[in-house]
Write a protein that binds this DNA or RNA. Structure first.
Lengths: 227, 227
DNA sequence: AATATTTTTTAGTTGGGTCTAAAAAAATAA
DNA sequence: TTATTTTTTTAGACCCAACTAAAAAATATT
């Protein structure tokens, strides 16, 4: 019954797990714990164990019990496809529909599961092949390659350096709304005037305005490029 | 636990049933049979019985066993919301993404379940408040009113009358592709030159070209307005 | 090294939405 | 009006994806 060319299809739930395992794997190559996955999927660890076994059977993850999980090449390809769709839809929502950057995540979580290759390629063209989403995150190519942008965390910038805000490392609505309130948006020119040893907060001038304080917690989640 | 203001949410499957019951109810007020629903939902009659009981419990349909089903006002409101989303997304797919009218149905079947009121209102504005979808079907208003367009079936037009093609009563891809092949698209000027008694086919001149034959089966599914 | 704690897995349920097979009701034909 | 056929419903089962409670493994502590 099963053919070499069988086109295995992915359920909504499976796609979510693969996407979350991908997110948790970015930037290192340790295996991911069951609990970590449970937290992001908003499910219980027991449910995760079940699903990991199923994903492993389908060849999308490597999973040994008690040892954690990581994506197989096939699983990573699926995950990158979901992330590509998610980010392209976010661009659409902001650029064409007029949403703010803090409003698009939930809607894109739904749109990322729409299944149509031709739609996503046409959408890409319609948006003029954006390289990044509204939060500065790179959009994987249709061949499943995630561009590496190599940005730095604002929290790692030394005093007296200048940089440009290129992205955020977190897209919760409250965080983004705070940035907006502080005049921190993509492309903003930042000048780190001082790093305060006491609480690791920094004094930053935004677009040449008088410097304001930015907490370490916020700075950690802001991505910049030195200028 | 349950509040007067509880916002009951609809599953994918429930939305499909409500939409299909709506489709089957258009134009008359007889109750719909279990089998009719089963055919369109691509499920078995037994599954339909189950679901109708559930929909009735939630107050979205009136259902007495063995007596058929019809939408309640609440159910009709939900159904019209789905149809509205389906048709707006179809306009988007054709007008903005460059799909042909025979390619959009399946994708819109997925997009119609995306849940975001603000998205659909923004989409409506982005598309400049279209009145009809790419097949000429009216788009329900956001208040849940289905505009009545009052078109005639081409099969009912008398010889020697002129009319304009305003819509189609069927959106299967093969049917739409045939129309395209015959140069029959929305807005085409039609002149019914003859009605052939033998097979009820008609001879029609399209945009002043020499007349061609159109079968009764095709003519039945073409909607026109006399000029 | 032995014990306590945390993490993960197993076992057994549940709910949603489907199915098949068989029974019951309604519609049709004799 | 009775018998036959068709339609619909019931009963019992399955799969998916979640859950809780309890057991087992891994990790941390004394």
């Amino acid at each position: 019954m099963s053919s070499k060319f069988a086109q295995m299809s992915t359920s909504f739930a499976e796609e979510n797990y693969l996407k979350i395992i991908y997110r948790l794997s970015e930037g290192h190559d340790d295996d991911i714990s069951t609990n970590a996955v449970a937290e992001l999927t908003q499910t219980k660890a027991a449910s995760v164990t079940d699903m990991l076994r199923k994903l492993a059977e389908k060849g999308w993850v490597h999973y040994q019990k008690y040892q954690g999980v990581r994506l197989s090449p096939a699983g990573e390809k699926i995950a990158l496809g979901i992330v590509r769709k998610h980010r392209l839809w976010e661009v659409f929502l902001v650029e064409k529909m007029g949403f703010n950057w803090d409003e698009v995540h939930e809607i894109a979580e739904q749109l990322e599961h729409i299944e149509s290759d031709s739609l996503i390629e046409k959408l890409d063209a319609f948006l003029e092949f954006p390289k990044t989403d509204p939060h500065g995150d790179p959009i994987p190519t249709k061949n499943g390659v995630m561009p590496e942008l190599g940005y730095l965390h604002l929290s790692d910038i030394k005093a007296n350096k200048r940089c440009v805000l290129m992205g955020v490392a977190k897209d919760s609505a409250v965080f983004l709304q705070l940035l907006t309130k502080m005049q921190l948006s993509l492309g903003a020119a930042l000048h780190v005037e001082e790093v305060n040893a006491f609480d690791r907060s920094i004094s930053v001038s935004i677009d040449n305005a008088p410097a304001v304080f930015i907490s370490h917690e916020v700075a950690k989640n802001i991505l910049v490029k030195l200028t």
